[in-house]
Design a protein around this nucleic acid. Structure first.
Length: 547
DNA sequence: TAGTCGGTAA
DNA sequence: ATACCTACCGACTA
């Protein structure tokens, strides 16, 4: 396309012109294999990474599809080095296969003897290979199935795993038949997962990931271990499974700090797996307590590092990872790919929104000027003080008040990161607050009142990142956020995306002190949402005051 | 045996 | 680079 929205550069970055009429179509196709790196106003930068290409390949997209996307939307000819690179990288996936020979022994095979020789000589892989019975075959140590996949990925030769799964103990599980059905995209996610046997399903917050889990369980019909981030989430899983499947309370157990039940379907926290006593993992037995046929990893982007290690030993069990984003701030995306599996399904937020399953949202970045004295204090402050100063600027309080008055009759959350700031905000707005220090029963009471509409304004700390579901909220005002976590931003927006009865658009404001580090961090946080097709409208605090 | 509290890890 | 929240465990009380 002579005047297309994309510019493909030889350093594997792709520039997208946001205002171009075809930008959204191009973004949609590009996002299949490229990761958004920067998203300022006019030009968004994507990067073509190996992992992105392999995930796309595993999901069934070929090099021709991806090159077709670039050719179709690119303003200038795609640099030949990039085309070649994409072709080569995509071609690397699946050249090596892990499977079982006729006797059921775990083997690494390839028809490409050069590649096989190369990897077999690698000093981290060699110890995992314990035999070489045929020119195209190496025997892999039975315990090393996960480890060898990790090492192979690291040296750029990801193996496709066809070694199969242990069936697990059969257990009857069906979806409840009470006039309820999986949505089309959930059904599709379940089917592609079932075909692949293990891997990750990426769906936005509020799109019903739990039901994809339930669907996968109904498909495999075996004893299932579900790993979740916290106990509230464990209860939510339990309630949802009771409501949506044939499972009864007697069949579902909770294994956490509070309860140690092992039942055909067991829901455990990640933390209990990583808990140590006398230097030893104290609850490893859980992993073999039953012959699990399926392991579900909820919020797989939050999987703690030690659980990767344990998961390396669980490669014979079917694994389903659920997440709203594959992005990990610790950069262990490769381990998710190797040990849980490649991405099997993902649907952009905007698409699910278009189908009416999550509500539309408008995002605003409100830039607040610091008054002269604070500006001076900021300039003089040491680096480690600066973020806090900028993020907690008192000037933000007035802006919050104005924003609140723009949304009469709506349920509004004010979200902050510093307890002092939260105290000030609650005072200034005359609104109740919830922080980690708020006793659990008081929290329940306030959340309940918010849901019922007795309270329409609530000031919350990071507690709101976890464990609460406030579908009635249609406005969120973020006054300070942590140091650039993309997940956090996504999660906060997700709080607002549950469909409203009114069908109205949700509003997400993030307040930024102009010309400070606050602005830099915010940009990092917004990246993920921009990738999903949300754009931030930049407002000036004065415009807000005027409106 | 259940409930609460403080320390610790991540 | 932070500050904050959560979960787990062991000790204590009754």
């Amino acid at each position: 396309m002579a005047d297309g929205p994309l510019i493909v550069q030889s350093d594997r970055t792709v520039l997208l012109e946001v205002a171009h009429p075809e930008a959204e179509s191009a973004r949609h196709e590009l996002a299949i294999f490229a990761e958004l790196e920067r998203a300022p106003e006019h030009i968004h930068t994507y990067r073509i990474t190996r992992l992105g290409l392999w995930n796309a390949r595993a999901a069934g997209h070929g090099a021709d599809d991806m090159l077709g996307t670039l050719d179709r939307w690119s303003r200038f000819p795609v640099p030949p080095s990039v085309s070649l690179d994409i072709r080569e990288t995509v071609g690397r996936y699946g050249r090596l296969v892990i499977e079982r020979d006729d006797e059921g022994t775990l083997v690494l095979r390839s028809s490409d003897s050069a590649v096989l020789t190369e990897v077999s000589r690698n000093k981290r892989i060699q110890p995992l290979l314990i035999g070489h019975p045929a020119p195209d075959t190496y025997v892999v140590d039975a315990w090393a199935r996960g480890q060898i996949k990790q090492e192979l990925l690291k040296i750029g030769w990801p193996a496709e795993d066809h070694a199969g799964y242990t069936p697990g103990t059969p257990h009857p599980i069906d979806l409840a038949e009470n006039g309820w059905h999986l949505r089309p995209y959930q059904q599709q996610a379940v089917e592609t997962f079932a075909d692949g046997g293990s891997g990750v399903v990426v769906l936005p917050c509020g799109a019903g990931k739990t039901l994809v889990g339930a669907g996968a369980m109904a498909e495999t019909k075996t004893t299932t271990l579900i790993l979740v981030t916290n106990t509230v989430s464990a209860r939510q899983w339990r309630d949802e499974l009771l409501r949506r499947t044939s499972l009864t309370p007697e069949e579902i157990g909770e294994y956490s700090g509070q309860a140690k039940e092992v039942k055909p379907v067991t829901i455990a926290t990640y933390q209990i797996l990583t808990a140590k006593r006398k230097g030893q993992y104290a609850h490893l037995a859980l992993l073999d307590a039953l012959d699990w046929g399926l392991i579900v990893y909820d919020e797989v982007h939050l999987l703690p590092a030690p659980v990767f290690k344990l998961t390396a030993d669980l490669q014979a069990r079917r694994r389903l990872g659920l997440t709203a984003t594959l992005v990990r701030e610790d950069g262990r995306e490769g381990d998710v790919f190797s040990l849980i599996g490649p991405k099997r399904f993902d649907a952009p937020w905007k698409e699910i929104e278009a189908q009416g399953f999550i509500s539309p949202a408008a995002c605003y970045e409100v830039r607040v000027d610091l008054p002269a004295d604070e500006r001076l204090e900021y300039a003089a402050a040491a680096d480690e003080e600066r973020y806090r100063l900028a993020a907690t600027a008192p000037a933000k309080i007035d802006v919050v008040r104005q924003l609140v008055s723009r949304h009469p009759g709506e349920r509004i959350l004010v979200i902050g990161q510093y307890l002092d700031q939260i105290d000030e905000l609650a005072d200034a707005l005359g609104a109740p607050k919830i922080t980690g220090a708020t006793p659990v029963d008081e929290r329940e009471e306030l959340y309940g009142a918010f849901r019922e509409g007795e309270i329409s304004l609530l000031v919350v700390s990071k507690v709101a990142n976890f464990s609460v579901d406030l579908p009635e909220a249609s406005v969120a005002i973020q006054v300070s956020g942590s140091f650039g976590s993309r997940q956090e931003e996504a999660q906060r927006l997700g709080r607002l995306l549950r469909p409203k009865e009114s069908g109205r658009t949700a509003s997400f404001y993030t307040l930024i002190a102009r010309d400070t580090v606050d602005q830099d961090f915010a940009q990092n946080r917004q990246r993920f949402l921009a990738e999903q097709g949300y754009s931030y409208t930049i407002l000036d605090a004065e415009e807000v005051a005027a409106a």
